[in-house]
Design a protein around this nucleic acid. Structure first.
Lengths: 135, 135
DNA sequence: TACACTCGATCCGGCTGCGTAACGAACTGA
DNA sequence: TCAGTTCGTTACGCAGCCGGATCGAGTGTA
């Protein structure tokens, strides 16, 4: 079932979920790392460095380094492909699944709280301030 | 009206919106910068460095640097408070509102496409792989 | 006037990430 | 067997962000 979000709801959802992550002392992944992690866990395997690189339009070295980081966090594992030993398969881990599960709860919670009226609409820019810049 | 998102939808939503941002060549803001930007645009003003620091649990130098970055992107402006000239007020700009409006569209679009069946459930970890690590 | 306090910016050393280029290992096909 | 291709990684230089300490300007109070 599709999820209908108007602009205000979308921004409030993103803000609350993001703020929860920023406030917490958990590991803060870059946007690229998070995109890789989500792709690995929510798209059908197998996942390879080259495949992720093409899917997400990220350079291969960046993928490789991100896998280093995700690996040291215990969120993903490398495994050589036995049929083509040049290739490596990116595997999921229980720890990564737990992390994403908690993250998904944060997002869901941020969406659930949206019933309170949004105090400001963001799509509408504020009255244009005077042009003088202080800095 | 609250937005109900199950775990799979929440992760797919985040993945698609994030991937759209990663693939595009637009400026990539850090999670902290994005949280600041969203707070400034969706919460009632005024916003000060100190206030943002407390709200988001981010150090003041980090806020100040983020404002440098957002300022040079044209997404926010500093303005001295005339009543307390130590304090500065973070102001919105038309360019920032446009940026967030487009971002909100990306999120909404990611949510709207969720009607296609999700191929994998992420909350369920894969069958536990053998303990041997390749690397 | 003198002193304590607050606000935001800046300095500092360190860490992390990026893309290009170059690399070794593995595979392919003649 | 051997040149050419493809795979992921590493080397390199660069840029950005981090927190703690420190700073100057502004404020409040006596």
């Amino acid at each position: 079932m599709p999820v209908f979000l108007n602009q205000d709801d979308a921004l409030a959802l993103w803000r609350d979920a993001l703020a929860a992550g920023v406030r917490s002392d958990g590991p803060d992944l870059s946007a690229r790392q998070m995109a890789i992690l989500l792709t690995v866990y929510t798209m059908p395997p197998p996942h390879t460095v080259r495949g992720l690189s093409e899917t997400l339009n990220i350079s291969k070295p960046a993928i490789s380094r991100a896998l280093d980081r995700l690996g040291q966090l215990g969120f993903a594992r490398r495994r050589r492909d036995d049929y083509d030993r040049r290739s490596i398969e990116v595997q999921r881990t229980v720890k990564g699944a737990v992390f994403l599960s908690e993250f998904a709860d944060q997002v869901s919670e941020a969406g659930r709280v949206l019933d309170s009226p949004t105090p400001f609409e963001a799509g509408t820019p504020p009255e244009m301030p005077p042009p003088e810049d202080v800095f």
